[in-house]
Design a protein around this nucleic acid. Sequence first.
DNA 1: AAGATATTGTTAATAAGTTAACGAATATTT
DNA 2: AAATATTCGTTAACTTATTAACAATATCTT
Lengths: 240, 240
Amino acid sequence: MAAEKARAGNLMSVRRLPAYLNLFKQLNATGREFVSSTHIASELRLQPDQIRKDLALTGIVGKPKSGYHVPALIKAIEEFLRWDNNTDAFLVGAGNLGSALLGYQGFAQHGLSIVAAFDADPAKVGHMVQGYQILPVEKLADLAKRMHVHMGIITVPAEHSQAIADTMSFSGINAIWNFSPVNLDVPDGVIVENVDLASSLAVLSHKLVFRMIQEHTLSEDGELEPIAIPEDNFERSTGE
Amino acid sequence: MAAEKARAGNLMSVRRLPAYLNLFKQLNATGREFVSSTHIASELRLQPDQIRKDLALTGIVGKPKSGYHVPALIKAIEEFLRWDNNTDAFLVGAGNLGSALLGYQGFAQHGLSIVAAFDADPAKVGHMVQGYQILPVEKLADLAKRMHVHMGIITVPAEHSQAIADTMSFSGINAIWNFSPVNLDVPDGVIVENVDLASSLAVLSHKLVFRMIQEHTLSEDGELEPIAIPEDNFERSTGE
DNA sequence: AAGATATTGTTAATAAGTTAACGAATATTT
DNA sequence: AAATATTCGTTAACTTATTAACAATATCTT
């Protein structure tokens, strides 16, 4: 069984699995039955070695000369991530981002289905958003227990996210997908995964600044000149 | 100057800077002038050592016994990330997620301002979304060059994102914030930062599965029992 | 049927990131 | 004014992740 191999400490590999799954589904759709690590590597611009190591933890084995059996890979990854049977989730915070997530159709194929949406703002309660009727957050605890929901999605403003996390933890929710820029304080046993846009933007900003420093010298007062991209420099970073 | 310290290879530190900045702004609002690494550590649940190392790359120095000067920290981080002067950006893909980003007010304080929004779908072009009039994607190249916009945000479905990235690269945009689950192929010199929700969800799913395996034994057929959270186990993972 | 070849799976080496440790410096206190 | 305690900044150990190398194996070809 694949589950036994599920050790802590290969989170980076786990993080790459969805990309593999994506590719494999595309390949499967075109009828391709076997795929080699070298082919995956060239497609996703990674090292073949890394791919073999990543795929190893799903438990499936490849055949020399042919590669890996694509349908088996798909099945194994989906099982490994439990994306084969649906997990019910509550979403709290029916603002712009919450609404976007509620409307996103792709979660179904990742084993996630949002079954109810909540908001603390009385003005929003009762209204329909993306087909969901917004419920008052006071009802969350009771509903979570009755419906046995174990996953929560937080898309509220920063100042309210800790309170929501408390409510969720108290209601039997033990996995929180947190879209607010706050380091949540949760009881032992509750898992938090953060999606931090500011963090991501910081990396982009920094890379951009770093590249500017690399390619242009600073003028005396420390200001940077805008970069003009030479038109003839339009080449792909990788061949193929 | 802080810029000289901008080396590649401390991306993890860069990733943590926004969280520091956030905290420092809160402290500044309450009138606090100095903060020690130990205090930051207890607040953000990190190691003091790591914080000193992270802050070191902004170039500011702290005073023993007092700590770091909060306004100086804020200024240094904002300069380091160029979040002090605004960067103009184009957004392509006025769907749910794109609309959420267009409506997000918080980007201004991260030095980002979305100046125009595009879509390939003629049905969406011309309509107003979050105060932006949606422009046809054909106009992107010309506008980007004329307005000297260097940053692009991609929130289109996976199948169209590569084409948008191509258009952007060709139009002088050299930093792409990519919200589609695709490994973009871009020319040398163009920077891509990905926000991959599937990846994040995979980690959450896996952590959840892993915890279930840890705390419960598998039943014979490999099915997992749902976890009942003991009510008396409601304790914070860290004190204070 | 036997050799050649492509590809896996594992083990070793390198690099990166995190955690720990410790000397130096500065307020505060007696 | 001297001693003490707190905090910085740097160096070093450790852990984790990535990259590379290599032996084993199955398929294809002649």
